[in-house]
């Protein structure tokens, strides 16, 4: 490694693999808890119940952040291979990163404000 730049992409390479493995674990858990039967995922109250549980909240907030990190980093890895003009590459990446940050906010807001619909028994 000659400079900081190549060191940075070595970390990116490593964390792309680690975040990918974590996402596999997340995705299996997500499919089993939410999509195993129609009733589990498609019922409003069971979804609200799930998302008011701190453990599931932590789970999904991590899922959203890791998903966008892995996806945006992956898109950058792809685009970098096509030797685009720097201005074009960073315009596209800027838009995607801005959109990803907004959707991380949307996801956080959904997970953290859904408790208002919880039925009091």
């Amino acid at each position: 490694m000659q400079n900081g730049r190549s060191k940075w992409s070595a970390y990116a390479w490593y964390w792309q693999r680690v975040s990918g493995l974590l996402l596999v674990v997340f995705t299996i858990g997500h499919y089993v808890t939410v999509h195993w039967t129609e009733a589990a995922g498609h019922s409003f109250q069971s979804s609200v119940e799930r998302l008011t549980n701190p453990l599931f909240q932590f789970w999904y907030l991590g899922f959203v952040v890791l998903g966008f990190y892995h996806g945006v980093q992956g898109l950058y890895n792809i685009l970098r291979d096509y030797k685009l003009p720097r201005a074009l590459l960073w315009s596209v990446m800027g838009l995607v990163i801005a959109a990803a940050l907004y959707f991380v906010y949307l996801g956080f807001d959904t997970v953290l404000s859904v408790h208002t619909w919880k039925q009091v028994r």
């Binding site: 792809i78 959707f103 996801g107």
Partner: peptide, 21 residues
Amino acid sequence: GIALLGYLFVHIWALRSLVKG
């Protein structure tokens, strides 16, 4: 990978219905 990044946006957008009742 590109398809899944696109789907992540769609999925979060679709689940906004959870805060609409």
